[in-house]
Computed example of a mutant assay.
Amino acid sequence: MTQRIAWITDSTAYIPEELRKAADIHIVPLDVIFDDVAYQDGVDLSSEKLYEKIEHSKTVPKTSQPAIGKFIELYEQLAEAYDCAIAVHLSSKLSGTYQTSKAAAAQCEFPVEVVDSQIVSYPITTLLGKGLALAEQGMDYRDIAETLRREASKNENYIVIGKLSQLHKGGRLSNAQLILGTLLQIRPIFCIKNGAVELFEKVRTENKAYRRIMEQLDRARSMHRVSQVEILHGNVIEKALALKEQIKSKHQDVEVLVYPLSPVLGVHGGQGTIALTWTNEPQS
Rank of each mutant, 00 (worst) to 15 (best):
R204G: 10
Q246D: 15
P188D: 00
R219E: 11
V226E: 04
V226L: 00
R204L: 10
E198K: 06
Q228E: 15
K244A: 04
Q228D: 09
M223G: 00
D218H: 13
A220H: 08
Y210Q: 02
N207L: 03
R212G: 09
R221E: 09
E198G: 01
R187D: 03
G195F: 14
L232E: 06
I189K: 08
A220W: 11
A209K: 01
E206A: 06
V236G: 07
L232A: 07
E215L: 02
V236R: 04
H224F: 15
N207C: 02
V197C: 05
I192P: 02
I247D: 11
K248D: 03
L243E: 07
V229A: 05
E206K: 15
A240V: 01
E206S: 11
K239Y: 08
G234I: 12
E245Q: 08
F200N: 13
I237L: 09
T205C: 12
R211K: 12
N194R: 06
N207M: 11
E201H: 01
R225V: 00
E230I: 08
V236A: 08
K202V: 10
E201Q: 14
S222T: 09
N207D: 15
E238D: 09
S227F: 05
A220N: 10
L217R: 01
P188S: 01
S222M: 11
K208L: 02
I247T: 10
R211T: 02
H224Q: 06
I237G: 05
E206T: 01
F190W: 13
S227I: 01
L243I: 10
I237D: 06
K208R: 09
L232V: 15
K202M: 02
K193Y: 08
Q216R: 10
I189G: 10
G234R: 02
Y210K: 11
I237E: 13
K208C: 04
E215M: 00
Q246N: 12
R187I: 00
V203A: 01
T205E: 11
K244S: 13
Q228C: 05
Q216V: 00
E245C: 00
P188F: 03
E245L: 01
V229Y: 13
S227H: 15
M214F: 12
R211D: 15
K239G: 05
K208N: 12
R211W: 03
G195K: 12
L241W: 02
S227C: 07
N194T: 00
R212K: 15
H224S: 04
V226F: 08
V229M: 10
L217S: 03
M214K: 06
L243N: 12
N207W: 07
K193G: 05
H224N: 14
V203F: 10
N235I: 01
F200E: 14
R211I: 00
I192W: 09
E245R: 02
K193R: 11
A240T: 05
N194E: 15
K248H: 05
L241V: 14
D218P: 06
N235T: 03
I192G: 13
G195R: 14
N207F: 04
L232H: 07
I189Q: 11
A242N: 08
M223K: 04
V203G: 04
M223T: 07
L241Q: 14
M223P: 00
I213C: 05
I237W: 05
I189P: 12
K248Y: 01
L232R: 14
S222H: 13
G234L: 07
